[in-house]
């Protein structure tokens, strides 16, 4: 052992995605730990049982009230089942992702393994991305496992391919963003408890806080709106409201679906102002995904900077 020289840096080459993922020792270790034993199997099973139960409930509740075997009614049920499954997945992702990552770095500190890692050659970047990648991989596994459930809706019709793609985009972005928020607070706080509190505060604010804010703002803005404000003010109110919708995962999903049904577009549409002039708008998911990906990138960079920082 002592005869061998100090190992040089691992040769850098572009391998397959699997090779590149597992080249990070933290990802490999975390995935190994996460998938070991019955824990992952139980989580996946319980998740799918709950999702199936929920989908069945939606179907039977609607079927009991009408004939849904085919035709326009069937398409409505298809939309309801699909929307219901995506909605519950979105809600779960908002609250499961932080649970997987809020202890990522602080857990190492609490377990007293942080200093061991810090004195190795492992870059701060690999520690942070390894933690995030392993957590995100498991959440994406949960999302992929639920696709067959979503596809039940295809039998009934009424769900367009772009709806499916947009839904997956929103779900994966949400998993990544909320997971990154967990990693960030975990790097920032010394204790997992503190990191969890801050991460869940963020999750609650962005899922439930913003709708409450909208509910407060809508009556106020309505006063302006119905008093025939200046076109510029009116346009700003619409864009401001649209932005608030576009930074909320659930509101984004619902609004995107509504626009898809009413405006028949997943991208671009126009609405008229009081003075008859039309202004252009884009579907909220087109803001939501870049916004949260940018937020993830910023938080990831900040997390790496915090981990890299030498104690003073």
């Amino acid at each position: 052992m002592t005869e061998s020289t100090a190992p040089s840096a691992a040769p850098k080459r572009l391998g397959t995605l699997r090779e590149r993922l597992l080249a990070n020792p933290v990802t490999l270790k975390e995935l190994r730990g996460r998938m070991r034993g019955t824990r992952a199997f139980v989580v996946l099973t319980v998740y799918l049982v709950l999702m199936s139960g929920f989908a069945s409930l939606l179907y039977f509740a609607y079927a009991a009230s009408t004939n849904v075997t085919s035709g326009p009614q069937g398409q409505i049920v298809g939309k309801i089942v699909f929307g219901g499954i995506v909605g519950i997945e979105l809600f779960l992702v908002c609250f499961i992702s932080p649970a997987f990552t809020a202890g990522a770095i602080s857990g190492e500190r609490e377990r007293r393994t942080y200093d061991l890692l810090r004195t190795t050659l492992l870059p701060a970047r690999s520690l942070v991305t390894g933690k995030l990648t392993s957590a995100a991989s498991f959440i994406i596994l949960l999302l992929l496992a639920a696709i067959p459930l979503q596809s039940l809706a295809f039998l009934l019709g009424g769900v367009a391919p772009e709806e499916v793609l947009i839904a997956q985009g929103i779900l994966i972005t949400t998993a990544l963003a909320f997971g990154t928020v967990g990693v960030f607070f975990s790097a920032l706080m010394r204790r997992t408890l503190g990191a969890s509190v801050l991460t869940y505060t963020f999750a609650l604010l962005s899922t439930l806080g913003l709708p409450l804010l909208l509910l407060t703002l809508v009556p106020i803005t309505s006063v302006f709106y119905y008093n025939s404000p200046e076109p510029l003010v009116e346009a700003l109110l619409i864009y401001g409201g649209g932005f608030l919708v576009a930074i909320n995962p659930i509101a984004t999903a619902v609004a995107t679906e509504v626009i898809l049904v009413q405006e028949h577009t997943a991208f671009y549409f126009t609405i008229p102002l009081n003075n008859g002039v039309t202004i252009p708008l884009i579907s909220p998911w087109l803001i939501y995904i870049p916004f949260y990906l940018l937020l993830s990138a910023v938080l990831l960079i900040l997390s790496i900077a915090i981990v890299r920082r030498v104690e003073k």
């Binding site: 730990g33 004195t119 050659l121």
Partner: peptide, 17 residues
Amino acid sequence: RRAIGYMPDFFGVYDDM
């Protein structure tokens, strides 16, 4: 870091490894 091996006074171990 390349030149040293460090063992702290208190250290933890991973429970799933």
